[in-house]
Design a protein around this nucleic acid. Structure first.
Length: 442
RNA sequence: GGGGGCGUGGUGUAGCCUGGUUAACACACCUGCCUGUCACGCAGGAGAUCGCGGGUUCAACUCCCGUCGCUCCCGCCA
């Protein structure tokens, strides 16, 4: 039976034992009498050494011709040695196998002193991912998503996977990608909106979906992508959008509590930011109030904007939430009908105002939600008012003809949340492989 | 889509404004040396038709125009 692999983070507890370590060669210091290697796996870095001697000539030769970033298997004895600055422990190598050598000239150096330009990093993303700081992003993402799912499942939600190929464009707003489909045109889903509502009409009560969504918008900002992972949920028998917000804040509090517990220290060390578990309830301001607050902070809106915040306004409102409530989050509620889609329910006593909300986190829009209009005739009237042609969305309107419960939900962006929680300036770096208007490779 | 900035060895930058030597520096790479390194050190070496095309000029990395790519801000949104 072959020696099982030891992860580098566990080396310290294996002093005196022979271990097998597998990873990449981070540094080679090939000296006259001693050879030093730094080996890295996804859990840490350890020093491995060999003395130069005639008895070890073969091994010495292998190490002399090693290249940095080669993938290797090392077998050796763990030795406690106070001279070693890194943990006081090293591996005395008995055997080294080069599983796959690395070309000497690496396009980017994962162990290098300076970070290459964003373009180079994206071109060679797999090398960039070898950097522990980059890898941490996706460990955090895993924890965050896991906690979200855990909370949903505990609350009786059903996970769905809706199709991304659509026979007709989903409701207006963002642009859609069209593609050839056996002689017809199909469209890539901009969101699972219609289908998660279908699940409500189907009696699922509560559903969530984490999956890809596509937006054909030529957006050139630090927080837009043409394909991203959407986080969506929908719940039945709500009285208003307030029920949805109340759910979301509990759900987020739980997800951040779990993420903070598991990765808070690492995030602090690598990104210099503390994951704060938010107090519940989050502050709420209506759009009318939001506009006043932002105006008091001296931000003048261009005249063509009617009742919506621009990114600067969102940032200022985020500042306000922190100053006034010491809170990173703030719900903005009651958006005017003009800036919301036809399926958002309207206030019975204020028909120009929707029962909707956005959630801002550190001044960045991370969620849009609402109570949906579930009454067929009202929904049809609202679609007509928005100038939509009913025929392409008739399949959707049909959901509401046979007893659809009152319901609401929200959609969030996974990478956007990751960007905010890690204080990263750009969505590209927190996306496994970014897709934008000019980025289709790798 | 609108506006600004930037493209120089494998990587990160300097040089450009105020055209004129072998285009410089750091890291990486190659060779040699080095009694335990730990950002190892020392000596030497290779590696760039300065994004691409055109123009001005005796002369263009440098100035002008175009083009492509990247990037930032605005718009759109998650």
């Amino acid at each position: 039976m072959s020696l099982p692999r030891t992860l580098i983070r566990d080396i310290g507890s294996r002093v005196g034992a022979e271990v097998k370590v597998q990873g990449w060669v981070k540094t080679i210091r090939d000296q006259k009498k001693m050879q030093f290697l730094l080996l890295r796996d996804h859990t840490g870095v350890v020093q491995a050494t060999v003395e130069r001697s005639p008895a070890k000539a073969a091994l010495n030769g292998i190490i002399s011709s090693l290249t940095r970033e080669s993938a290797v298997t090392v077998i050796g004895t763990v030795v406690a040695n106070p001279i070693v600055k890194m943990g006081g422990v090293e591996i005395v190598i008995r055997e080294l196998t080069v599983e796959a050598p690395s070309d000497g000239l690496i396009p980017i150096d994962p162990a290098g002193p300076v970070e290459p330009n964003p373009e180079v990093r994206l071109n060679w993303r797999f090398l960039d991912l070898r950097r522990p700081e980059t890898a941490l992003i996706f460990q955090v993402q895993t924890a965050l998503e896991h906690a979200m799912r855990e909370y949903w499942i505990r609350e009786g939600f059903v996970e769905i996977h809706s199709p991304k190929l659509m026979g007709s464009p989903s409701e207006g707003g963002a642009e859609v990608f069209a593609l050839e489909y056996f002689g017809r045109t199909s469209y890539l889903a901009q969101s699972p909106q219609f289908y998660k509502q279908m699940a409500m009409a189907g009696g699922f009560d509560r559903v969530f979906e984490i999956g890809p969504v596509f937006r054909a918008d030529p957006s050139f900002t630090a927080r837009h992508a043409t394909e991203f992972t959407g986080i969506d949920m929908e719940m039945s028998w709500v009285d208003s959008h307030e029920d949805v917000m109340a759910f979301e804040e509990q759900w987020l509090r739980y997800a951040l509590e779990r993420t903070q517990a598991q990765w808070g220290d690492a995030i602090h060390e690598v990104f210099g930011v503390d994951v704060r578990v938010p107090a519940v309830p989050f502050p709420r301001v209506s759009m009318d109030e939001a506009l006043e607050i932002v105006a008091r902070k001296g931000h003048v809106f261009p005249p063509e904007r009617r009742g919506d915040l621009d990114p600067t306004g969102e940032r200022l409102l985020g500042e306000y939430a922190m100053e006034r409530y010491g809170h990173e989050f703030v719900f903005v509620t009651d958006y005017p009908v003009d800036v919301r889609p036809f399926y958002h329910m309207r206030h019975p006593d204020a028909p120009k105002v929707t029962k909707s909300f956005d959630l801002l986190w550190k001044g960045v829009e991370v969620t849009t939600g609402a109570q949906r209009e579930h009454r067929y005739h009202v929904l049809v009237a609202q679609a007509k008012e928005k100038g939509l042609s009913l025929e392409p969305i008739q399949f959707y309107l049909d959901f509401f003809k046979y007893g659809c419960p009152p319901h609401g939900g929200f959609g969030a962006g996974l990478s956007r949340m990751l960007m905010v929680v890690l204080n990263q300036p750009n969505i590209r770096e927190v996306t496994f492989l970014f897709r934008g208007p000019t980025r289709l490779h790798p």
